[in-house]
């Protein structure tokens, strides 16, 4: 089932141009195109670009998990965010995870800062998608994220580690949206 959010208005055309160039780039060139595009923007527009990329990247995960699963009955389910994904969905989730480091670098952010931006992006994206028809898995991810937002979920990580004080906060933040086991 296709996930479709309403179009975004009020974003500077220069930012949109950079985002479109990034989205249209070859997979191997995406980070470089984003990095170079960011540098062409006025300094005041760069935070807007970060926010846009964060929302798009959050929505990307939901859309990717909503794509056809290509599963067979023999597939062993892959746990992720407290859900059971198909093997194909597991591959997409893992690839999405690994992509975050390149994105952070392209945006001139460290991993922790990008994790926080992603958390904000998830929150805004889920608000935008509220009430929209989602596939089962995408709806499950959205539900988990709404119940335990990215920025605060890590605090529930085993032992109640405060993500803002943890050396691993940036790494944790990438997947902190999951529902941690208490």
């Amino acid at each position: 089932m296709a996930v479709k959010a309403p179009s975004k208005a009020g974003v500077a055309s220069a930012v949109i141009a950079v985002v479109k160039a990034w989205a249209g780039a070859r997979v191997a060139d995406g980070d470089r195109v984003l990095h170079d595009g960011r540098l062409t923007l006025d300094a005041l527009l760069r935070p807007v670009l970060v926010d846009e990329v964060a929302e798009i990247t959050a929505e990307q995960l939901i859309i990717a998990l909503d794509l056809p699963q290509g599963a067979t009955s023999d597939d062993k389910p892959v746990p992720f965010l407290g859900l059971e994904l198909s093997q194909e969905q597991g591959k997409r989730a893992a690839q999405w995870l690994t992509d975050q480091q390149g994105l952070a670098a392209a945006l001139g952010l460290d991993m922790e800062a990008w994790s926080k931006k992603l958390g904000d992006g998830f929150a805004r994206t889920l608000e935008t998608l509220r009430g929209k028809p989602l596939g089962d898995v995408a709806a499950g991810v959205a539900s988990r994220l709404q119940a335990d937002p990215l920025k605060t979920a890590a605090a529930g990580f085993a032992g109640g580690v405060d993500p803002s004080k943890s050396e691993q906060a940036g790494l944790r933040g990438i997947l902190a949206a999951r529902t941690f086991k208490k």
């Binding site: 296709a2 996930v3 479709k4 959010a5 309403p6 179009s7 975004k8 974003v11 949109i16 985002v19 479109k20 989205a23 249209g24 997979v27 995406g30 846009e52 929302e55 798009i56 990247t57 929505e59 990307q60 995960l61 859309i63 990717a64 794509l67 997409r92 690839q95 999405w96 992509d99």
Partner: peptide, 13 residues
Amino acid sequence: LAAARQSSVNNRY
């Protein structure tokens, strides 16, 4: 994933 990103951008703008 690239298609998902492109879809998001198309929907957005």
